[in-house]
């Protein structure tokens, strides 16, 4: 049984805005009956203000697909198209208090239907089409009709790292498995691009002050939340040139595998986000 949040159950039991807007001027439809879920979103957009004044949905799918659709209509009502366009699948999932990871593709479907509806209003898309067929690119997952473009985009937007995550978010690779190697290749490609982009962004040679700030930010954003999940934490003690000194706290202090934590998490993240030649040293109290 899935561990759905109360908010998901609520939206599934009593979904908001079910149906079809009669004089809709923006309609987006994604998914298909073969894939096991589909969403048709119809909107009435006020021409003068571009505000969404009415939003309704029809969904074929599981509990979380219905809940994602329902909460999406709540989120976009009253927003302008530009505001609505900023909504990501993460926002939809967060609004529901989270979704089981295997169900993240339901939130992706919500975002895609919204994009399709906005494109339809702006004359860029066909109302009754399936996004799968629309999306350009090479077909990677033949079972669910997912292209490399869509996989690339989802990896970037959701910071995905593994094949399993890609399957959870896009369904790609979820059936016969023959495309797994292609998906893994795409993951590697995207990560390489991201690393190169970051390398270019980074100023050549940080000042001491810049480095300290960047190290602290990276530790707070990328490292500590992960450690905290395991009941641990870490504090930054000092930075000497490019040698960062930290102290592990809580469950992490004295942990048998702390050297792996340091190398594979702390140092890896700092190398990725600060400087490639940074080193980390553990201070033991």
């Amino acid at each position: 049984m899935w561990d759905y949040t109360d908010k998901v159950k609520e939206h599934f039991s009593k979904p908001h805005n079910v149906g079809s807007v009669e004089d809709a001027n923006a309609v987006g439809e994604v998914g298909s009956i073969v894939c096991g879920d589909a969403l048709r979103l119809s909107l009435k957009v006020d021409k003068a203000t571009e505000k969404i004044v009415e939003a309704k949905f029809q969904t074929f799918g599981c509990g979380s697909a219905i809940a994602s659709s329902s909460v999406l209509t709540d989120m976009i009502l009253g927003k302008t198209l530009d505001e609505a366009a900023k909504i990501t699948n993460r926002d939809i999932a967060n609004e529901l208090g989270g979704l089981p990871k295997e169900k993240m593709h339901c939130s992706v479907m919500g975002m895609e239907a919204l994009e399709a509806a906005i494109a339809n209003y702006r004359g860029q898309g066909v109302a009754d089409s399936h996004l799968h067929e629309d999306e350009e690119g090479e077909l990677v997952c033949k079972c669910f009709g997912i292209t490399d473009k869509k996989i690339e985009r989802t990896i970037k937007e959701n910071h995905l790292h593994t094949l399993e995550e890609v399957t959870n978010f896009t369904k790609a690779g979820g059936a016969c498995g023959s495309c797994h190697w292609k998906i893994e290749e795409i993951i590697r490609k995207v990560h390489k691009q991201e690393l190169e982009a970051k390398a270019e962004e980074k100023p050549k040679g940080l000042t001491n002050l810049q480095r300290m700030k960047l190290v602290q930010e990276t530790l707070d954003r990328e490292v500590r939340p992960q450690l905290q999940k395991d009941g641990g934490d870490l504090e930054l003690v000092d930075i000497e040139n490019k040698n960062v000194k930290v102290r592990l706290l809580g469950m992490c202090s004295g942990c048998q595998v702390s050297r792996f934590t340091l190398r594979d998490l702390v140092e890896a993240k700092l190398k990725e986000f600060v400087e490639p030649d940074i080193t980390v040293e553990e201070l033991r109290s």
Partner: peptide, 28 residues
């Protein structure tokens, strides 16, 4: 879709199973 049917039945205390992809944990 089967999972939605199961959840609705679950609200009424009725237990059954589905061959739907969404109930399996895999997507198949």
């Amino acid at each position: 879709e089967g999972e939605a049917i199961l959840l609705k039945m679950n609200d009424q205390g009725i237990c059954a199973s589905s061959g739907s992809a969404c109930t399996s944990g895999s997507l198949e």
